[in-house]
Amino acid sequence: MDQAEPERRSPSTRLLRPFLRLFAAPRVNMREDYEKVRRLQRLAALPAVPRFRALDRTLVSRTSGESIPVRVFEPRERRRDDVLVFFHGGGWVTGDIESYSPACTTMADLTGCVVASVDYRLAPEHPFPAGLEDCLDVAATLLDEPRRVGAEHPDRIVLVGDSAGANLAAVVSLLRRERGLPGPSRQILLYPVAHWDHDPRTSPFPSVRNHGDDYRLTNTEVQDYFDLYVPDPELRRSPLVAPLLAEDLTGQPRTLLITAELDLLRDEGEAYGGALERSGNDVRVHRVPGALHGFIALPRFSRSLREAYEVINAFLDEGSSGSATAPRATRDPGAS
């Protein structure tokens, strides 16, 4: 969508808008209540965790020497050799392998892939770059030793993340290229955080102004997350926090970037997809109509979830053949 144009909403979206507001997140002061939110997320996830299909592993960080928990989920039926290395969302502050276990179980079943969920360190106890370092360490280990999670070759390792986790996946790919190291062949970025400014008065993105008050994620909540993750405002302009600001985006993995129509992060995510495309990367951008931020955690009967996995499975079906820098981009009409 051209950022200079007014946003165009479908008639169905306009009619659904009052109903969708019912699903807005409760207004909390994340800077004070993040521990309470973490506890509630874990409690909500407990009834849906199929423990018999998950195996807990531990990797030792090459940077900090700390242990990094990784939970490996087996699908009911394995249909692909790929292993999806998943970095969860939660604004770098909330979320963990417990609260995301239901979503990872769904991901494993609907893709037929093994999913390895990474329990990276969270802010404010461990601010930037601690969580990023953990994700880098796990990616390095699994790209060097893919059989540790059941992959036969590094090309079978696919980085996946949602929201802040998608930000981490994108930055891991950028840093692997910058350091001259082989990166993943593919990455799937779900409604990523790609920019640092989410103030409706100054943001360059219409979705920040149009969807920052009513729905699942708010401008205030994003600002709270940044305050906790990157306390120094100047550091927030680093490409390691805001990958859209990276000067060199060449040599990135084949990328599927999925956004949600009613998400304040929508436009910056699509802008990142466009920037990757202009740098000669193989990119597909897909916008899920009527979707809210965080839809990857919805029940399996959700229309938004089903549509996203149709696109994800089509992307995975293309395999890992071809160069990660081949300029073959596909852009869905809804994301134009």
Results as ranks from 00 to 15, higher is better:
316 L>D: 03
19 F>L: 14
47 P>L: 15
313 N>K: 12
294 G>L: 10
119 D>C: 07
13 T>Y: 00
167 N>L: 01
306 R>I: 13
223 Q>P: 00
297 A>K: 14
278 R>I: 11
233 P>K: 03
88 H>D: 05
290 G>I: 04
174 L>T: 11
122 L>P: 05
315 F>W: 15
328 R>F: 14
269 G>E: 00
104 C>A: 15
153 H>K: 05
191 Y>R: 01
50 P>W: 00
240 L>W: 12
158 V>K: 05
205 F>V: 03
79 R>D: 06
69 P>L: 13
64 S>P: 12
283 V>M: 05
332 D>I: 00
17 R>P: 00
274 G>Q: 06
128 F>C: 07
260 A>Q: 06
131 G>L: 11
35 E>T: 12
27 R>W: 04
69 P>A: 12
295 F>I: 06
290 G>T: 04
310 E>W: 08
41 Q>T: 03
139 A>G: 06
193 V>M: 02
301 F>I: 06
47 P>H: 15
296 I>F: 12
76 R>G: 09
20 L>Y: 07
162 D>E: 12
186 R>A: 10
67 S>I: 09
221 E>F: 04
83 V>R: 07
147 R>S: 13
96 D>T: 08
92 W>M: 05
140 A>C: 07
1 M>L: 06
91 G>H: 07
268 E>Q: 02
87 F>R: 03
244 L>E: 05
30 M>G: 06
112 G>T: 09
20 L>V: 04
250 T>W: 10
137 D>G: 11
96 D>K: 10
308 A>F: 15
117 S>D: 13
27 R>T: 12
121 R>N: 13
208 V>S: 00
165 G>R: 01
296 I>R: 05
64 S>F: 14
258 I>R: 00
325 T>Q: 11
112 G>V: 06
312 I>F: 05
62 R>L: 07
38 R>D: 07
258 I>M: 03
107 M>P: 04
300 R>D: 08
19 F>G: 05
260 A>K: 03
110 L>K: 08
319 G>M: 09
129 P>G: 05
209 R>T: 00
326 A>I: 09
313 N>T: 14
75 P>A: 14
115 V>I: 15
150 G>K: 08
98 E>C: 02
5 E>P: 00
74 E>F: 10
58 T>N: 08
136 L>K: 09
200 P>N: 08
77 E>V: 10
152 E>M: 01
218 T>Q: 07
63 T>N: 09
6 P>C: 02
280 G>N: 12
23 F>V: 11
98 E>I: 08
163 S>I: 01
77 E>S: 15
243 P>V: 06
244 L>D: 03
303 R>G: 09
222 V>P: 00
278 R>K: 12
210 N>Q: 12
228 L>V: 14
17 R>E: 04
264 L>E: 02
132 L>Q: 08
134 D>R: 11
63 T>M: 08
174 L>K: 14
221 E>R: 13
166 A>P: 01
277 E>I: 03
20 L>R: 06
148 R>T: 10
231 P>N: 07
233 P>G: 03
257 L>S: 04
200 P>S: 06
16 L>R: 09
191 Y>W: 08
184 P>D: 08
256 L>C: 05
155 D>M: 01
173 S>C: 15
160 V>S: 02
